[in-house]
Design a protein around this nucleic acid. Sequence first.
DNA 1: CACACCAGAC
Length: 625
Amino acid sequence: MKDSQKRLEIEEDVWSAGRKKTNFNSHEIGHYGDGKIARMSRHNQIPLLIHSTLKWTKNYKTQSNPPPLQQKLSTNLIKAYFDNGLLKQARQLFDEMPNPDVVAWTAMVSGYTACGHYNSAWMMFNDMMRESLDRPNAFTFSSVLKACKGMKSFSCGAVGHGLAFKHGFVGGSIYVDNALLDMYASCCESMERALLVFEHIPVKNQVSWTILITGFTHRDDGLAALQVFRRMFMEESEQSPYSFSIAIRACAGIGSHIYGKQIHALVVKLGFDLNIPVMNSILDMYSKCNSLYEAQECFNEMNEKDDITWNTLIAGYAKPDPMKSLHLFLQMELQGCTPDCFTYSSVITASANLSALTCGQQIHGRIFKNGLEQNLPISNSLIDMYAKSGSIQDSRRIFSEMCSHDMVSWTSMMVAFGSHGYGTEAVELLNQMVNSGIKPDTIVFMAILSACSHAGLVDQGLSYFKLMTTKYKTSPSQEIYACVIDLLARGGRFEDAYDMICSMPFKPDESVWAAFLGACKAHGQPVVTACQELDLKPKGSGIYVTLANMYAAEGKWDDRAKMRTLVDEAGVKKVAGTSWLEVHDQVYSFVAGDGCGSQIEPVYQALRVLGRHMVEQTNVTQVGI
DNA sequence: CACACCAGAC
């Protein structure tokens, strides 16, 4: 009990210093001549003792050239302080050093960088260039370039590049070259400069390759990343699990199950299948490529799993099979793994997709118990979950109690309002967001257009569509056009909607026709003749079915038959729309006309109660929202 | 054996 409390305390401290929770219990801080190793823990007094001993050492502060042992010991201590997130103590010790050498300066730069205090690292480097008598070495430049990467500052990085070149380390140290490569890959819009650096590295190592592949993958250019990965093989560079992990992520990014499987085979061949991070990427890749079966197989075959393994699979199942996701969550705990913010965020999503309010509330309770209620992604998922489970008030409460909002929070709340028919509230929210200085992106516009569409605020929606191109200078995507067409058609403005379909810069795809036809159907509008000339691709079965139903409604049985034939030829099946009802602790899903099975009885019971309530309400007053 | 570069999840 006491131990776990202690652990928690350290974790918090380490967390606040922005570090991962490794190496915090004790750390090797140095070796003495006799081979003894000093170990440090923040709960014993050894470091302070050594620190004070240093201070007491004769002439420590006045000597211009302190003995090497003292220099080494101080530097070791500085590193140990940083490793434990004790920035102030590290700084204090450094300031006490009479004549810090290049190694001590570098330890400060890299220490600050490792703790995420990039600005301090950069300042330290500047102080060093001004004050230190030593010349910076390769260690210094690789550290400071990493700090530039952390600051996302191209200009600082360029200064670092110039100085590193001046001191002869560009092309002279693989560490400096790699840090430089990484800095350009992280700070620039394009990979141009990074590629330039890469081609000039005399002997590339696996780190160089990994950085390049990472650069392309993070720019969502999975194909370029895989090309580099391939080239790495052709040039017979040494292999590392890092490059595999990221190349697999690239496959996930482009949704290529085929490439993913090939790399998976390579992983097995080279024996990287014992590497947990690599296997976790493979799991993620399969689930992102809709190959949950393969993902599950990999999961079953893994001898060793970590928390991320569980999180990856739970996240993978959250949408396609939320029930399975929740089961895995329970299993995870039984296996002794601790759920974290990623786990909770996924299971909340799973619960949202089941529209299972009670289940969502229970998980929310657990989140509170674990003190994670202010976690941003979790709060965002909660907004979505409560909205999808029918409790918009709770979504609203979560949103207002959050201490900060990101783009996802605003969008989720807008979607929540929109799906409940609160168009005005969604518009108000968008104004608030813009006033707080956030520039709306495509997703936000889609959310607001949809909200306006569902609330019948046609002109309001159109004004936002206009604003997109005039004020925010974004060219509307295919999806945006689909939203606007939906807005117009639902609002009964079929002519305008049809004109827009004809004049938009895209060839109308299924989503556009689905929006248009759906609205026509809802308004009992006859099928527009032009629809017969549709160039429909045979995958959107919904459109054929919609069309067939519309022809049927008009009594055009020949046309209906044509459509049904198209459906059959394409071999597509319309997925039945299901509804859910939560009765006691059970969620029942059913389709229209679903009458068989004993398990449907509670649903009918609940429906009868609901029906009675509605009748009573209507007798008293008109039903509101 | 004082200081350095790269990977995975919502």
